[in-house]
Lab assay of single mutants.
Amino acid sequence: MASQGTKRSYEQMETDGERQNATEIRASVGKMIDGIGRFYIQMCTELKLSDYEGRLIQNSLTIERMVLSAFDERRNKYLEEHPSAGKDPKKTGGPIYKRVDRKWMRELVLYDKEEIRRIWRQANNGDDATAGLTHMMIWHSNLNDTTYQRTRALVRTGMDPRMCSLMQGSTLPRRSGAAGAAVKGVGTMVMELIRMIKRGINDRNFWRGENGRKTRSAYERMCNILKGKFQTAAQRAMMDQVRESRNPGNAEIEDLIFLARSALILRGSVAHKSCLPACVYGPAVASGYDFEKEGYSLVGIDPFKLLQNSQVYSLIRPNENPAHKSQLVWMACNSAAFEDLRVLSFIRGTKVSPRGKLSTRGVQIASNENMDAMESSTLELRSRYWAIRTRSGGNTNQQRASAGQISVQPAFSVQRNLPFDKPTIMAAFTGNTEGRTSDMRAEIIRMMEGAKPEEMSFQGRGVFELSDERAANPIVPSFDMSNEGSYFFGDNAEEYDN
């Protein structure tokens, strides 16, 4: 993207840094990872977990959730003011799984939030270390993106479920800051804005008074975040219109849905970061690795190297396929839920299948599930090659597409044709070009129609051997075009429920 120079890199967003050079960025990201790792080690000690239990991804998720809940100030305040039966607002906890007599047992633990905050700050040299908290939120978000298709949420806001490739980060909490905003897809931002506008339509006082002023500035800020994701002048001009509207209503909703559809071809720039579970960072720190000293990046080879040398386990339900569970977590670790499966298959070195073909449910185990038949197995999170994460949407291309997802959002900077089903997408653009945004709409449609099938995206960008740390010898991959490109292809993934 041309304006790259004016933006802070995501590592800076990730670490609240002012302008830093590459070495400083690597050190501050490393410091953040160190903090998460030290916190995780301490929690495993508190909970008396064995090494194996500490490497269980379900335990990692519970521990991450506990610290996120302990620092969720708004919710904590709300819980104190609106006490609900049987919930102690000062405590947080969740299921911890232990191996007892050759069987997995679930144990519900409860801790004072104050105590968890103390352990977290102690692991982070006394700081609140917001960057580390956001990092864990993005890992949870990436896992949700890989596990669930947001059909219901899309339909509720009037969008087409086939636009799911635009929904990265749709389950990120509001408090995820600049680093969170960077990884949100165009569809996620559109959905947040539509929800806001709908509230304004239904509630006369939404934009009024002292609160209304705050609401208005939040609305304009979200519009600017979305505008910054678009790469064409016409899309940005249309966002200006939406932002400046005196009284946002149905016309703005129409414009936003139009823009979301246009992003299936004229893709937005959305950041991709490899955020790993805390149970990967903990053992690495415990083994003596100093992330701050060595430096770390979320968008280069580092996460690949770390996963190459990590042992992570997962509980497996009786009829689940461990290899499929591994694929789910591998995609989440690489922030690749909406990437082209052919690119992923090449990088991973084994075939990556669409969601609907995987015999696996989510990673988390519900409290009512029976533990008797639970097994555990090693997650295979290694890769054959590594590639640089991208934040450009890439230019655009036609490809055989599917009944489910009709476009992709690249996660890796790797040369390819970008699949999208042009006739299906263009069919949504018939007729409606009147109104105050008509010239911009016409211009956007013209650009979409001009998108050429034979153009290559990320020209000359390749993948790298894991021994090639400096990215000196790019390998331009070859793809098996007979395979499906979309992950949520004609899909039956479970729906995400809060």
Score class of each variant (00 low, 15 high):
residue 411 A to C: 00
residue 272 H to D: 03
residue 437 T to F: 02
residue 116 I to P: 03
residue 41 I to Q: 06
residue 130 T to H: 00
residue 141 S to D: 13
residue 255 D to L: 13
residue 186 V to R: 14
residue 136 M to H: 07
residue 318 P to S: 06
residue 74 R to W: 10
residue 485 G to Q: 04
residue 416 R to E: 12
residue 135 H to N: 06
residue 221 R to I: 05
residue 470 R to C: 08
residue 254 E to Q: 05
residue 77 K to H: 00
residue 119 I to V: 04
residue 117 R to A: 12
residue 380 E to A: 01
residue 4 Q to W: 01
residue 127 D to T: 00
residue 182 A to Y: 05
residue 399 Q to N: 08
residue 95 P to M: 09
residue 123 A to H: 09
residue 205 N to D: 13
residue 4 Q to P: 01
residue 386 W to Y: 08
residue 381 L to V: 01
residue 374 M to G: 07
residue 331 M to A: 02
residue 45 T to K: 09
residue 86 G to T: 02
residue 237 A to P: 05
residue 249 G to P: 03
residue 267 R to V: 08
residue 314 S to F: 09
residue 78 Y to T: 06
residue 205 N to M: 03
residue 108 L to H: 08
residue 331 M to R: 03
residue 337 A to D: 13
residue 127 D to K: 00
residue 445 I to T: 06
residue 353 S to L: 01
residue 23 T to R: 00
residue 250 N to D: 13
residue 4 Q to E: 00
residue 36 I to S: 07
residue 14 E to V: 12
residue 189 M to D: 09
residue 201 I to V: 15
residue 104 W to M: 04
residue 247 N to S: 06
residue 65 R to G: 03
residue 335 S to H: 03
residue 305 K to T: 03
residue 416 R to T: 15
residue 482 S to I: 01
residue 139 W to D: 10
residue 466 L to T: 00
residue 358 L to I: 02
residue 20 Q to F: 09
residue 215 T to V: 14
residue 413 S to P: 03
residue 53 E to S: 08
residue 335 S to V: 10
residue 462 G to H: 10
residue 204 R to A: 02
residue 280 V to R: 12
residue 329 V to D: 07
residue 432 N to Y: 04
residue 375 E to W: 07
residue 49 L to Y: 06
residue 414 V to C: 06
residue 342 R to K: 14
residue 110 L to R: 12
residue 33 I to T: 03
residue 115 E to I: 06
residue 206 F to H: 04
residue 123 A to M: 07
residue 123 A to V: 05
residue 394 G to Q: 02
residue 76 N to E: 04
residue 387 A to F: 13
residue 341 L to M: 08
residue 123 A to G: 01
residue 319 N to H: 15
residue 131 A to T: 07
residue 200 G to L: 13
residue 359 S to I: 02
residue 27 A to D: 09
residue 453 P to V: 01
residue 261 R to S: 12
residue 378 T to P: 02
residue 124 N to S: 13
residue 377 S to Y: 05
residue 432 N to K: 06
residue 374 M to A: 04
residue 251 A to S: 06
residue 410 P to S: 08
residue 467 S to Y: 05
residue 260 A to P: 12
residue 205 N to F: 02
residue 113 K to H: 01
residue 362 G to Y: 11
residue 480 D to N: 06
residue 135 H to V: 09
residue 275 C to M: 07
residue 20 Q to W: 07
residue 66 M to C: 07
residue 461 R to W: 14
residue 321 N to F: 08
residue 224 N to K: 02
residue 237 A to E: 04
residue 477 P to L: 13
residue 216 R to G: 14
residue 112 D to L: 12
residue 164 C to P: 02
residue 84 S to E: 15
residue 350 T to M: 01
residue 92 T to D: 04
residue 27 A to P: 09
residue 479 F to T: 14
residue 498 N to D: 08
residue 152 R to K: 06
residue 390 T to A: 04
residue 321 N to Y: 15
residue 219 Y to M: 04
residue 38 R to D: 10
residue 308 Q to W: 02
residue 60 S to M: 02
residue 269 S to L: 13
residue 380 E to P: 02
residue 294 E to H: 00
residue 344 L to H: 06
residue 376 S to L: 06
residue 181 A to Y: 12
residue 107 E to H: 03
residue 468 D to G: 06
residue 277 P to R: 13
residue 249 G to A: 04
residue 114 E to Q: 00
residue 65 R to Q: 10
residue 417 N to S: 02
residue 119 I to N: 08
residue 194 I to S: 03
residue 247 N to T: 00
residue 279 C to D: 12
residue 424 T to C: 13
residue 131 A to N: 13
residue 189 M to V: 07
residue 416 R to S: 15
residue 238 M to D: 06
residue 169 G to A: 14
residue 415 Q to T: 02
residue 161 P to V: 01
residue 102 R to F: 01
residue 14 E to K: 05
residue 70 A to L: 04
residue 224 N to A: 14
residue 230 F to Y: 05
residue 116 I to V: 15
residue 31 K to V: 01
residue 63 I to G: 15
residue 367 S to M: 02
residue 131 A to H: 01
residue 398 Q to V: 15
residue 178 A to H: 03
